[in-house]
Amino acid sequence: MPISNPSVTIDPTLQTEVSRFLASYAECIDTDRLEDWPEYFTDDCLYMLQSRENFDRGLPVSAIRCDSKGMLVDRIVSLRNANIFAEHFYRHVLSIPLIHSVDDDNIVVHTNYVVFQTLLDGASRTYSVGRYIDTLTRVAGELKFKEKIAVFDTNQIATLLVTPI
């Protein structure tokens, strides 16, 4: 049952639950609790961080493309143990999540995001601007990302990208 008209009533409890889930996801990353980050996903999830340039052309190449929770864990293990990068902080700012459809299994929700990055020199820059196209589902009653596609407008990744968005 797709709801494209935002004036259509969404159960406020669901709206609050989805909003809190997304806020919690962002806080998890921003507070560097990256080992918990995979827990926001189902085991057979798809996490894609892709440029709008490729998304709009329907091309598959993504900055990050993980099709299992295991791959998310591996990303974080690599970040902690293998990759070399400048120490930095992220600050996600999210728009109100717009629930597009709800059915027995899935909740499709779109949310705009801005990620500011602050390096040790203290300067903050707009690191990535884009939108999340998320499909949520419930596992043992808890919301999880079955699919999270982050499409970024900011089409010049500054230096490198190691921390997920």
Binding site: S51, E53, N54, R57, L59, P60, V61, S62, A63, N155, Q156, I157, A158, T159, L160
Partner: peptide, 9 residues
Amino acid sequence: LGDERQRIY
């Protein structure tokens, strides 16, 4: 398969 753009200072 697609492009990626990286800005290096």
